[in-house]
């Protein structure tokens, strides 16, 4: 009986959740978000038209498919192209290293939109020459120009990611593998790449997200990706909800990807956690 009373007396005072200035600001800001969400919802319901939805749904889906195709193709081709560039960046040959550096500097230092224009409109200046080598049919199509420009662009970024990741693996790993008698290919495949992948995963994921967001600009050179279909739908209906639909789709893709990358990172770093 007595002990119980002392215990009750020694219990720390209950911490009250106090109403602070920060909470006031937080509640106000959240209310603004909620009001905005409500306004968008009301706007969407007000503008809701099943005929428009049925007409444009297939177009949005085809646009989404074009976006996905563009990103997947250029990221994969860019990954392949990034290997020699990363190799060149680390080369001991000064000329090769300078060339690779210039490539990376150019594609990372100029806007993707300007690069796309340079390929799509600019290469038109060389039409006779391109026709002579039979490449004109390739560069005449906006789609191929977009893939070409995006591949060159992402290759520059991916080369830097790859180089940073490989260099993050310590020299001792190479030496130990050599001491064990592994060949260079085996060392790269079994020792270096698995460790480099842990470092490279997040930057690679960010690069894919940046490509998805960046791919919206191909709409300007008449490729009907998700953004292109959206712009077409807007120009036909003058209905602002076309843009809101596109925003929701892009947000959903990016959020799903971001969570997927987080999940993969948690899985492949399990051995590092205690």
């Amino acid at each position: 009986m007595r002990t119980e009373q002392t215990l009750a007396a020694e219990r720390p005072p209950v911490v009250r959740d106090r109403w602070t200035l920060q909470r006031t600001i937080g509640v106000v800001l959240l209310s603004i978000w909620a009001a905005l969400a409500l306004a968008v919802l009301v706007f969407m319901l007000d503008a809701w038209d099943p005929a428009i939805f049925q007409r444009y749904l297939p177009r949005y889906l085809s646009g989404l498919w074009v976006t996905v195709k563009l990103v997947v193709v250029s990221v994969i081709l860019g990954a392949l192209l990034s290997i020699p560039i990363a190799y060149g960046r680390t080369s001991r040959n000064g000329f090769v290293a300078a060339l690779a550096y210039a490539y990376v500097y150019f594609f990372r230092g100029t806007p993707l939109l300007a690069q796309t224009f340079l390929v799509y409109y600019g290469l038109g200046s060389f039409r006779p020459e391109l026709q002579a080598v039979g490449l004109w049919t390739f560069f005449r199509e906006a789609w191929y120009c977009a893939v070409f420009a995006f591949t060159l662009n992402t290759a520059a970024y991916q080369a830097e990611i790859l180089r940073g990741a490989i260099e993050s693996v310590r020299r001792g790993q190479w030496e130990a593998a050599a001491a064990l008698g592994l060949s260079k290919m085996q060392t790269i495949r079994k020792i270096i790449v698995p460790q480099a992948m842990i470092v490279a995963l997040r930057p690679y994921g960010n690069e894919i997200i940046l490509m998805i967001k960046g791919s919206a600009i191909v709409a300007i050179i008449t490729v009907y990706d998700l953004m292109g279909e959206t712009r077409r739908a807007y120009s036909q209906t003058f209905d602002f909800q076309t843009y809101i639909w596109a925003a929701m789709i892009y947000l959903a893709i990016v959020e799903v990807l971001r969570n997927l990358i987080d999940w993969i990172e948690r899985r492949i770093t399990r051995h590092l956690k205690r």
Binding site: R23, G26, L29, W33, A216, Y250, L251
Partner: peptide, 21 residues
């Protein structure tokens, strides 16, 4: 946590949307 949530919504929204959009 309300203020954190409001700030996080902002980042999620504008980092997820394409700049052009």
């Amino acid at each position: 946590r309300f203020l954190r949530l409001a700030a996080n919504i902002y980042t999620t929204l504008f980092r997820g949307l394409p700049e052009l959009l």
